[in-house]
C-alpha cells in the first residue's frame, strides 16, 4: 500500500536547482535507502517529505491527500522523524524525550493520558532502554541517544519513519543492531525512509535503494541491482585504486 508519494518535485535555493523531477512512492513494509554524495539533495528531499518546507513545484501526497492540506499535528501522526543523534541543550530525562512523541495526541495544556504513558513504556521496552528512563539524555552515548530518538518516533505511533543518516556516530556493533531493528520494523509494516552514506550496508539491509545525483534520481530499485560496483563508482566519483579496496571489502 502506498503511504507517501512525491510527484515531480522541484526545489531551488536561490538560482541553484537542488531537486528536479523527483517522483517517488513509498510503501508499507518497505525499507528505502536514499544515497548520494553530500549536496546531492538527500536531506532536502527528506525535509520536503516531512513537510518542513514546501517544494517549488510538484506535490507530496500522504495517503492520497496533499501534504500541504494536512495540519502539522495530523502529519505527525503519520510521519515520525528521527534526526541525526544530537546533544540537547537541556538535560531532559530519557522518558521526557520519548514522551514528546505523544505530543500529536495531546491537546494544549493537557497531560499524558494512560494510553500515552503506555505507548511511551512500550517504545522504551521495544528499544530495550527502559532502564535508562530516568537518565538525562545529555549524558548518554551516541548510540543510546539514537535509540532514544527511535523510541520517541515509535511512541509517536506513525506508520512512516524518516531517518536522517541514522548510523552517524554509531560504532560497528551499534550499526549492526540498528540494521536489525530497522529490518524488524519494516517486517512489522513500517514504511521506513533513511538517508545513508554506506552503500555496502544499504545492499545488505535495505529493500530498496534510491540514488540521487545533482538533485535527480539516477537509479531506483532493489539494492543488489541498483548498487552495482559501476553505479557506486560513478555515484561517489571513486577512482580505480579506491574501488579495488571497496571490492576487497565486499
Amino acid at each position: 500500500m502506498t503511504l507517501l508519494q512525491a510527484r515531480n518535485l522541484r526545489y531551488r535555493r536561490q538560482k541553484t536547482v537542488i531537486l528536479d523531477g523527483i517522483s517517488l512512492s513509498f510503501h508499507q513494509g518497505e525499507l528505502t535507502a536514499l544515497l548520494g554524495i553530500n549536496g546531492a539533495g538527500k536531506s532536502t528531499l527528506l525535509r520536503l517529505l516531512l513537510g518542513l518546507m514546501p517544494p517549488d513545484e510538484g506535490d507530496i501526497f500522504l495517503q492520497n491527500k496533499p501534504l500541504k492540506a494536512i495540519s502539522r499535528k495530523a502529519i505527525a501522526r503519520y510521519i515520525a522523524y528521527v534526526p541525526q543523534e544530537h546533544k540537547a541543550v537541556f538535560p531532559y530525562t530519557v522518558e521526557e524525550v520519548v514522551s514528546l512523541g505523544r505530543l500529536p495526541y495531546i491537546a494544549f495544556g493537557q497531560n499524558l493520558s494512560l494510553a500515552d504513558k503506555q505507548a511511551v513504556k512500550q517504545a522504551l521496552d521495544y528499544l530495550n532502554i527502559a532502564s535508562l528512563s530516568a537518565r538525562p539524555y545529555t549524558e548518554l552515548s551516541g548510540g543510546e541517544r539514537q535509540s532514544v530518538l527511535l523510541a520517541r518516533a515509535l511512541a509517536q505511533g506513525s506508520p512512516i519513519l524518516v531517518l536522517d543518516e541514522p548510523e552517524t556516530g554509531l560504532d560497528f556493533g551499534q550499526q549492526l543492531r540498528l540494521a536489525v531493528l530497522l529490518q524488524k520494523l519494516a517486517d512489522e509494516g513500517y514504511c521506513i525512509v533513511a538517508t545513508t552514506h554506506d552503500p555496502l550496508r544499504a545492499r545488505q539491509i535495505f529493500s530498496r535503494a534510491v540514488l540521487l545525483q545533482r538533485g535527480r534520481i539516477i537509479a531506483d530499485g532493489a539494492p543488489r541491482s541498483v548498487l552495482t560496483r559501476s553505479a557506486i563508482e560513478a555515484l561517489y566519483n571513486i577512482d580505480e585504486n579506491i574501488a579495488l579496496s571497496w571490492e576487497s571489502v565486499e
Binding site: 499535528k73 495530523a74 502529519i75 537541556f90 531532559y92 514528546l100
Partner: peptide
C-alpha cells in the same frame, strides 16, 4: 510541553506536530 519540543530544535518540534 510545546516549549520542551521547541527546545529540541525547530525541525524536531515541527515533526512532533508543533506549529
Amino acid at each position: 510541553r510545546l516549549l520542551d519540543a521547541l527546545s529540541m530544535g525547530d525541525d524536531e518540534a515541527c515533526t512532533l506536530g508543533v506549529s
